[in-house]
Design a protein around this nucleic acid. Structure first.
Length: 111
DNA sequence: AAGCTGACTATGG
DNA sequence: GCCATAGCCAGCT
């Protein structure tokens, strides 16, 4: 396998517009024992690959934009999500559960 | 080679 | 509800 990285990217790329998920959710979804940190690390490396990775749709379990500093601007991540219809309280997503996109559901339904 | 850091999470005080 | 610890492990110095 191309390592868990490819799996992570695969999941993140499937996050629909206006939805978000957490690092831990992705990690567990692909059975990543390494923990959620590796997911974040993968995001950091996502800028090297050709695929577009909507990393702004990946936040921590609290719905907080912990990775905003890795974008062009400190508000880029938030503005991207706001443009997708997500509201914020500072750096925290409002109604996080409503916007939460569970990778398990997507992989389970598989229609 | 050894140590530090980090886009995390869970647990305990 | 905030602060400290611990588990996790890939990259960087």
């Amino acid at each position: 396998m191309t390592d868990h990285y490819q799996n992570i990217y695969n999941i993140v790329k499937q996050i629909p517009n206006g939805r978000v998920t957490s690092y831990g959710a992705i990690a567990r979804c692909i059975g990543l024992k390494s923990g959620a940190r590796m997911v974040g690390w993968a995001m950091n490396s996502s800028h090297v690959i050709d695929d577009f990775i909507p990393a702004h749709r990946v936040v921590n379990r609290n719905g907080i934009l912990t990775g905003k500093h890795h974008f062009d601007g400190e508000t880029t991540m938030r503005q991207l999500l706001e443009s997708e219809g997500i509201f914020f309280d500072g750096d925290q997503i409002l109604d996080f559960e409503k916007h939460f996109w569970d990778p398990f559901v997507e992989l389970t339904k598989e229609d």
